[in-house]
Amino acid sequence: MLSIKQLTKAYGAHTVLDEIDLEIATKDVVAVIGPSGSGKSTLLKCINFLEPYQQGEVRFEGQCVGYREAAGKRREASDRVINRQRARIGMVFQNFNLFGHMSVLDNLIEGPIQVLHEPRASAIERAERLLDKVGLLDKRDQRPSRLSGGQQQRVAIARALAMRPSLMLFDEPTSALDPELVGEVLATMRQLAEEGMTMLIVTHEMEFAREVATRVVFMEDGRIVEENAPERLFVSPENPRTRAFLARVLRHHGHHNHNGAR
């Protein structure tokens, strides 16, 4: 479904992503971990072309994201093509980024109506079902600013799902939350994974990555250092740099357990 080959991105002389290779199949749940500044967020933003990249390619459902070949040269694809690709990929941000001037419900129907040109009635019907699913149907007419961070992030997840994406990207979805609100968001994501959604999650929640991910990718300095099943990567990491990183964060995070499952 998603195939990343030799993806390279630089800001001037500074290489942010260095020859990234990553394959994601349908129903995969891939967690990306690594120190801040390792390029994890940038990787996500290249996948839906919020960030352009210089070399390599991102293929989503068989189609190159953001670029087209013309006479042997690479050209940026038209806005229409890029927007159609983005509409198939859901994204959840660290800071939620709900539309502040709209009600919760309007946040959910905005994309389906304005981008997918769906009839209003069916968009509302699905939006209400999704709000019910994330447990926030009673907030449908509220402004996002009246909600807690955890609630806002669950609305943001529902907003992304309202577009019926085939892939969901999560960019540190719990990093801006107070610790007591992390659990409810992780529970929603866990439920989504169990339903078979294909997910790529940049996270610092090691416990969650270990329990929910089908694969874990460790990134450092713009490269993928190690990619493995969670039980392998967390228990017996092959690369010494992975080991060093895990030793560092597990010592830090080990004492609190959010237990988002229940």
């Binding site: 927007n83 159609r84 509409a87 990929i89 941000f93 980024n97 539309f99 905005e110 994309g111």
Partner: peptide, 24 residues
């Protein structure tokens, strides 16, 4: 973040300005 969220759902630039950015 409002720009990013609008672009991420595939909203065209002009529509994003009209529906999301200018009202705010």
């Amino acid at each position: 973040g409002q720009f990013m969220a609008a672009r991420a759902i595939g909203m065209p630039y002009i529509k994003m300005l009209r529906r999301i950015i200018l009202p705010q």
